[in-house]
Design a protein around this nucleic acid. Structure first.
Lengths: 255, 255
DNA sequence: CGGGGGCTTGAAACTGATCAAAACGCGTGG
DNA sequence: CCACGCGTTTTGATCAGTTTCAAGCCCCCG
């Protein structure tokens, strides 16, 4: 059911009318599961469908100067190649980290739908704008912060984004990444990432064992990271499968 | 006339029908000129109109860790706050560098227009996607390249973007930035930017005197910069005032 | 002609990279 | 169940790129 995940996600940002939601529920789709490090799309591909991350995690990456650079993480509810509706050629590779499940919706279905439902157009457009804001934040992170706050910032971002889709439990979340992935996202060497993580552990700000990360003392971590969640433009919701269809004022506290 | 600049820009990417173009020409607007370092919008502002850069240059910036970080440049034809249609609060500051002229179009005019003209929605949405692609490229630039190729890459990007709007003359363009601006965009210190520029001069790849930059041996510069213009998703046109309105198959090559 | 912002230069300090190797953990096959 | 093997994490030592601080210079604008 990509519908529930997507509806929850879009509701967390823009408003959707009942008609919009009903229209989303009628979307045809196919699902596919990817294993760790499976390539979902390659640079140069021109897909004819858009993916919705149902579970798991994707990274957007490209080799720059013999070094792999990760430029985005995509978590459940994200649409990693939504832009192919307007920019047909992929200029990066999309890769599954850990097992992930994607739902695919054909462009040929999306295009007429978006013409008939401007509310959905706005909601999806907004999604791409939020991702642009995340990219800008990464620019700031890479350009202005040194290793420790930089890594801390990325952890805060991941925690917050997972929280929005209900995948943060008591400050802990499952993270399929290796330290090398983190290095490639942060523009640091693997060795230095390792030392930075150890430093964060020593400061009692995080635990990271295996594929589980816990944020201890989240406020302090956010201070160290110089993190403010505003740029994510997201509202916390109860969980990915709980829309707000019955409540009348769920998000009023966030207005 | 924001219409011509905007139409030229949008034509350079997506296709626009005659009706779309006519509709753009009927947009009401106000113009305003800003002096060097004038603040156009502040963090926290919730503008009710969108700007189109008519001439000059804006930067998007924010203070991170007592350091000013620039996360975007906006050149003629760009719409630096288009995203406020969907994300009302500015999370950065927009600042004019050198004298620049902006045209403003009210949200209240844009919104109904976009509902009635899906082609215009797509064209503007596409613009935001191109800027997202530029942000990703900056992430790669900051994360993977060291000073010399990093600065060279930014110069190549600026040249290419200016070329698209006809502001590149024989490899030369007017650049209102100081070296400090470049430092703040590249995540480097002013001192090191200076040394890097000198190195580029010594390699006979650029000239940079006052506010004029010339790219000598552009191919070599692009090689050093590891630059490929694909991510800009732009087509070179004769100039900003020359649309392709008479052709019958302007975009057929892109279908 | 004066002032000031921007550019340039030098030396020292530091952050993070690189190289190399060892320890660890975990899934697989014997 | 144990041994193997490989990918990941950890550690140490050395090195390089970049920052920082401080001062001088140039040039343009007023």
């Amino acid at each position: 059911m990509p519908h529930q995940v997507l509806i929850a996600r879009l509701l967390a940002g823009a408003g959707l009318t009942e008609q919009d939601q009903a229209r989303l529920r009628s979307m045809p789709h196919t699902s596919r599961t990817f294993k760790n490090r499976d390539i979902v799309l390659r640079q140069g591909d021109t897909p004819v469908q858009c993916a919705v991350v149902m579970s798991g995690c994707l990274i957007r990456q490209r080799v720059v100067r013999e070094r792999n650079q990760i430029s985005s993480f995509y978590l459940p509810g994200d649409m990693p190649d939504l832009h192919t509706l307007h920019l047909p050629v992929m200029d990066h590779e999309l890769c599954s980290v850990g097992t992930s499940t994607l739902a695919f919706i054909p462009h040929s279905h999306l295009r007429p739908m978006l013409i008939d439902f401007p509310g959905l157009t706005n909601a999806l457009w907004r999604e791409t704008l939020v991702h642009a804001a995340i990219h800008r934040e990464w620019v700031e992170n890479l350009g202005s912060r040194r290793a420790l706050p930089r890594v801390a910032h990325l952890l805060c971002e991941l925690a917050t984004r997972l929280e929005v889709v209900g995948l943060l439990e008591d400050g802990s979340f499952r993270l399929p990444f290796t330290q090398q992935d983190f290095a490639e996202a942060c523009g640091l060497s693997t060795v230095h990432i390792n030392r930075t993580i150890q430093e964060l552990r020593r400061m009692n700000l995080i635990e990271w064992r295996g594929h589980t990360v816990s944020l201890l003392r989240r406020k302090e971590l956010e201070t160290v990271a110089d993190f403010s969640p505003d740029y994510l433009h997201a509202f916390k919701v109860a969980g990915p499968l709980h829309g707000r269809s019955k409540g009348i004022s769920d998000q009023s506290a966030m207005a």
